[in-house]
Design a protein around this nucleic acid. Structure first.
Length: 438
RNA sequence: CGGGGCGUGGCGCAGCCUGGUAGCGCGCCUGUUUUGGGAACAGGAGGCCGCCGGUUCGAGUCCGGCCGCCCCGACCA
């Protein structure tokens, strides 16, 4: 993309409405614009980030056998009356009425709908297990939206739902999802530690929140230093092998990790002092098992092996996709702007032509742009160098390919890494190889 | 939902107390000179001062109501 033609409005000053750093940077870098309290429009660069995150989430869901669906944002109140949640949910649920005076709601979550869909199509225990997911906009009418996109009213969420014949099956589903989450967050370039979470009335220990460490996080967190060297990815784990799954699961969940709400002082004190880590974090995912809560209340059942009806055991698994955009920025930025992890950046690199109009600079840039135009943002604007550096730093491209008369004469380009600020003069081919691979 | 604050060119703000020609910085447009970290000079465009009502000869300013947004707290992917 050529910056001279891009809809890429950057701001030099901080909008007054934004307090926290990710919100300010998202506004300044031209990722989003607020249209109402807690509701945002996504501009081209922001949408690219959102899509990159969604795609990584999607690939890792698919990899553990979950299947993607897409359910509507508007739901019939009837469904929710069946589960009893229509009255229980409270004012956070946005309710509306259509022209026929039918009650509708903008979905804050989809347990009822997915349970109904699955239940109406599945007859036998042989049709299970199933895990279905979607990436869809949700709406929760928060009393007080804040922190920009991290606590908006409308938000993009990946929500998955598993259905199993029995508890053991549900545990397998839960563990597979744990594996998928660890892989997902690693690919997103952030460390999200699974922390024990409240299981509500269900009990048990099958509930984890995934917390990204960031100094501006909402909750205090306590965890074992072992998480700093954790193999999060479980590359070799076979999702069909319960023993392998269990081994991975134990490895990533047995070390101590809890938010302040669930902090256990005695367990904490039992840890060697040099292994204690304290900080703050942002919740970006939550997985939990809730058994037959909805299959019972909505009377969804399948025939079991003995012919008797059984209510499938469910779990549900969320990732806050739009929240992650803000959370990643909270975890990765400096005074100058965003530092995108490579996997989520809107563009892999910025190409800075420091002297448009200079034959040598133009030739080099055009050559690079012709080859990698899809993956980079070409700053061909007739502005001064300082403006380009500042905007590139703000927007947080992982790499900056800097082409100026100096290097052009020497046959080199300058490669700057946004992550650590290092710069080096390299021959063109080598610089491109560093950025785009050999 | 309780408490606090703010709505004035695109953005950041002053002006309001004490009513009388709407201002500053940045950005934007034109020109000249500049050109490796948000340039300089000159000229220019751009405003139902959130909305409605009231007081007044006269309201950005005073009074009432409404709307919107932000912050702190209780609550959440």
């Amino acid at each position: 993309m050529r910056l001279s033609r891009a809809f890429q409005p950057t701001l030099k000053e901080n909008p007054a409405e934004a307090q926290i750093v990710s919100h300010r940077l998202m506004l300044r870098a031209g990722l989003v614009r607020q249209t109402a309290s807690g509701i945002y429009a996504w501009l081209p660069a922001g949408l690219r980030v959102l899509r990159n995150i969604a795609q990584i989430v999607r690939e890792e869901q698919d990899r553990v056998g979950a299947q993607e669906v897409l359910m509507p944002t508007l739901q019939s109140a009837e469904l929710w009356k069946r589960s009893g949640r229509y009255d229980a949910y409270g004012p956070e649920m946005l309710r509306l009425v259509d022209r026929h005076e039918r009650d509708l709601l903008y979905g804050p979550t989809n347990e009822e709908m997915i349970t109904d869909i699955l239940g109406s199509s599945v007859r036998s225990y042989k049709d299970l297990p199933q895990t279905l997911y979607q990436i869809q906009w949700k709406f929760r009418d928060e009393v007080r939206p804040r922190f920009g996109v991290m606590r908006g009213r409308e938000f993009l969420m990946k929500d998955a739902y598993s259905f199993d014949v029995d508890y053991d099956g549900a545990v397998q589903s839960y563990r597979r999802m744990m594996l998928a989450y660890m892989r997902t967050f690693r690919r997103l370039g952030v460390a999200a530690i699974p922390m024990v979470a409240d299981t509500g009335p269900i009990g048990g220990d099958l509930s984890h929140e995934f917390i990204i460490l960031a100094p501006t996080g909402e909750s205090g967190v306590f965890f074992d230093a072992g998480y700093e060297e954790m193999d999060w990815v479980g590359e070799a784990v076979d999702v069909e092998d319960p023993a392998a799954l269990a081994a991975f699961y134990d490895r990533v969940t047995t070390l101590y990790a809890a938010t302040d709400e669930k902090h256990d002082i005695s367990a904490w004190d039992a840890l060697a002092p040099d292994r204690r880590r304290e900080g703050r974090g942002i919740e970006v995912g939550h997985i939990f098992y809730f058994g037959t809560k909805y299959t019972k209340s909505m009377d969804i059942s399948v025939a079991g092996p003995d012919g008797a009806a059984l209510h499938p055991e469910m779990g549900s698994y969320g990732i806050g996709v739009s929240r992650l955009v803000g959370a990643i920025i909270e975890a990765s930025h400096d005074e100058a702007g965003i530092k995108w992890p490579v996997g989520v950046a809107p563009w892999k690199a910025a190409l800075l032509n420091l002297k448009p109009g200079d034959a040598a600079c133009d030739a080099i840039c055009n050559d690079i742009y012709a080859r990698h135009g899809e993956d980079l943002l070409y700053d061909d604007r007739p502005d001064r160098a300082g403006v380009k550096f500042a905007d590139a730093d703000l927007m947080g491209h992982p790499f900056q390919l800097i082409v100026g008369p100096r290097g052009a004469a020497a046959g080199t380009v300058e490669l700057k890494r946004r992550a650590d600020g290092t710069r080096e003069e390299l021959p063109l081919a080598e610089a491109l190889a560093r950025v785009f691979g050999a």
